[in-house]
Amino acid sequence: MNTDCPLPIATEQTIRLGHGSGGELTQRLLRQFVLPHIDNAWLQQGHDSAALPIGNTQIAFTTDSFVITPLFFPGGDIGELAVFGTVNDLAMSGARPLYLSCSLILEEGLEMDILQQVMASMGRAATATGVQLVTGDTKVVERGKGDGLYINTAGIGLVESLQTITPQAIEVGDAILLSGDIGRHGIAVMAQREGLEFGFPLASDCAPLHQPVQALLNNGIDVHCLRDLTRGGLATAMVELAETAGLEFWISEDHIPISESVQGACELLGLDALYAANEGRFIAFVPAAEVDSALNLLAAHPVSREACVIGRVNAVAPRDRGRVIIENTLGCERLLERLPGEQLPRIC
């Protein structure tokens, strides 16, 4: 009987969709092809936005591109996402978001009505988050060379708190807080995109996060690190932070809130909610002694009303650094990995 295995496939020579998933392939792309040419101290912080000293003040600076299809989905649209996404990246540096740019890449043939709706949505989102879209650019590409509409936003915010909020500031003994249930955005968009109907409501969690973050900082919570959960989901964010911080995180699967709708859709499609995208959730690292006050503050904001503790930062031997342990409901522990490429639905 032949027991040979298939031939190995050589490392990819071209860009795959998986390189944009925010997981292991994205990391490898950055390490091998991007960072070596442009590396500097701010990139090395490995944070959602760069905290830059300018004069006597500290500015947070970030950028994000939005290429989502469909443009409108249950719970949000690309315009809202483009504002909230950048606002959230600024908020994760502890900054008060102030000004955003808006670059539009439009595909020939896009209906004016759609552009109108998206821009109206951006305007509303900016008003709601107290930011202004102060500069921008518009380009049009030939039909077939874009998905109707891409948006890039960059943003700057003012860092008013004296705390250093970076992965490097995470300390052994910190509690890990999660601001709410996970996986809504990824599953809702996938369902909409593929025309899947589950018989229960699924909506994106798309929301701005600056208010609960400001509440923590303004009330003196000693926040060590913040990270909003986006592509790659909770699992990927945790692994990235553990590696950057060089520490071991321990989390409990039982404590991670997942709505019944998301869980149901994941069960049907063979997906893991730990890896599903979010657009309105974050994790916070705070000293264990400040957990209760932090949770009370978060509970006052609708977007983080269900915030909870999901784990802690462990003291470990040097060889165990940079890993995330997840304990399941039976008390069995396993290692958590970042998303390898794309999450693909299973066959049966």
Binding site: M1, N2, T3, D4, C5, P6, L7, P8
Partner: peptide, 11 residues
């Protein structure tokens, strides 16, 4: 079939 990379999937 001509797999011969020596990985153990069959076993």
């Amino acid at each position: 079939e001509s797999d011969n990379s020596g990985c153990l999937s069959g076993a």
